[in-house]
Amino acid sequence: SLSVDNKKFWATVESSEHSFEVPIYAETLDEALELAEWQYVPAGFEVTRVRPCVAP
């Protein structure tokens, strides 16, 4: 099958004044980091952490 098993990760994104967490959907932690950097670094943010979303 061609289905992709995307998992939810939380990326911590920082600017000079703010820090916030955004959801990233990817297959692996490395891919989540790449996606977060691709989305947020060009906008002037720094991705400081990516972690798996742990269900309660």
Rank of each mutant, 00 (worst) to 15 (best):
P52G: 07
A36S: 03
A11N: 01
A32L: 03
L29R: 05
E21Q: 07
E14Y: 12
L29W: 13
D5T: 14
F45P: 00
T48H: 04
T12Y: 07
E17R: 11
G44N: 03
P23E: 13
V47Q: 01
W10V: 06
A32H: 01
T48D: 02
N6A: 14
W10C: 15
V47D: 02
R49Y: 10
F20D: 01
L2E: 08
V47N: 02
H18V: 13
A43C: 15
S3G: 10
R49K: 13
L33R: 15
R51A: 05
D5F: 14
E37C: 10
S3Q: 12
V41G: 15
R51M: 06
S3R: 11
A32N: 00
F45R: 03
A32Y: 02
E34Y: 14
V50S: 01
K7Y: 09
P42D: 06
P42V: 07
V22C: 07
F20R: 03
V47P: 02
D30I: 10
E17L: 10
S15M: 07
L35M: 09
I24C: 05
E27Q: 14
L29M: 09
S16V: 07
P56V: 10
V41Y: 05
V50F: 03
A36H: 01
K7N: 07
K7D: 03
L2T: 10
W10P: 00
A11G: 02
L35G: 02
W38D: 09
D5K: 15
E27V: 11
S15V: 05
S16T: 08
C53K: 02
R51C: 05
V41R: 09
V4P: 10
A26T: 02
L33A: 05
F9H: 01
T48W: 03
E34G: 07
V13S: 01
V13F: 05
V41D: 04
Y40I: 04
V41T: 09
A26G: 03
V4Q: 09
K8E: 05
V22Y: 04
V47M: 01
P52T: 07
T12Q: 05
A32R: 01
R51P: 00
V4T: 12
S1H: 11
L29A: 08
V4W: 08
K7Q: 08
P42S: 09
S16P: 12
V41P: 05
S15N: 14
E37P: 01
T12K: 07
W10S: 03
C53A: 13
D5A: 14
L2Y: 10
W10F: 05
L35W: 07
E31L: 11
V13M: 04
E31G: 05
L29Y: 07
A43T: 04
F9T: 00
T48A: 04
G44I: 01
L35H: 05
E37A: 09
W38M: 14
I24H: 00
E34H: 12
L29D: 03
V4Y: 11
K8R: 10
R49A: 14
S1W: 09
P52S: 08
P23C: 15
S3K: 12
I24R: 02
E14M: 13
A26L: 00
T28C: 05
V4H: 13
E21T: 08
F9N: 00
V50G: 02
W10T: 03
P42A: 12
K7G: 05
S3V: 11
T12N: 04
V22S: 01
P52K: 06
S15L: 06
P56W: 11
L33W: 15
E17A: 08
R51H: 05
F20G: 01
K7H: 09
S19M: 07
L35D: 02
D5P: 14
D30K: 14
S16E: 10
V50E: 00
S19N: 05
V54G: 08
P23S: 07
P23R: 06
R49E: 07
V4M: 12
E31F: 06
V41Q: 08
V54Y: 11
E14T: 14
S3T: 10
S16D: 08
V54H: 09
E14V: 14
E17D: 12
S3W: 10
A43E: 09
I24W: 02
Y40D: 03
A11Y: 02
E31N: 05
R51N: 04
E31W: 04
V22Q: 02
V13W: 03
F45H: 02
F20E: 02
F45Y: 13
D30S: 12
E37N: 12
S16C: 08
P23W: 11
K8H: 09
V47H: 05
V54K: 11
V4D: 07
A11M: 05
E34L: 14
G44T: 00
E14N: 08
V13Y: 05
A55L: 12
G44A: 02
H18A: 11
Y40L: 04
E21K: 05
L2H: 12
P23V: 15
E34Q: 13
D30T: 10
V50P: 00
E37F: 12
N6Y: 15
H18E: 10
S19V: 11
S19Y: 07
A32P: 00
R49S: 14
T28R: 03
R51V: 10
E37W: 13
L2Q: 10
V22T: 04
E37K: 15
K7R: 11
L35C: 06
A11P: 00
P42L: 08
S16Y: 08
L2V: 12
T12R: 12
R51D: 04
L35P: 00
D30F: 09
S19I: 09
A26E: 01
K8G: 04
V54C: 09
K7V: 08
N6T: 14
T48G: 02
P56R: 07
W10R: 03
K7L: 08
H18F: 15
E31M: 12
A36W: 03
V54A: 11
V41A: 11
T28Y: 03
P56I: 09
W38K: 15
C53R: 03
V13Q: 00
Y40M: 04
F45G: 02
T48L: 07
E37D: 04
V4E: 08
V22M: 04
I24V: 06
P23M: 14
Q39V: 13
K7C: 15
W38F: 12
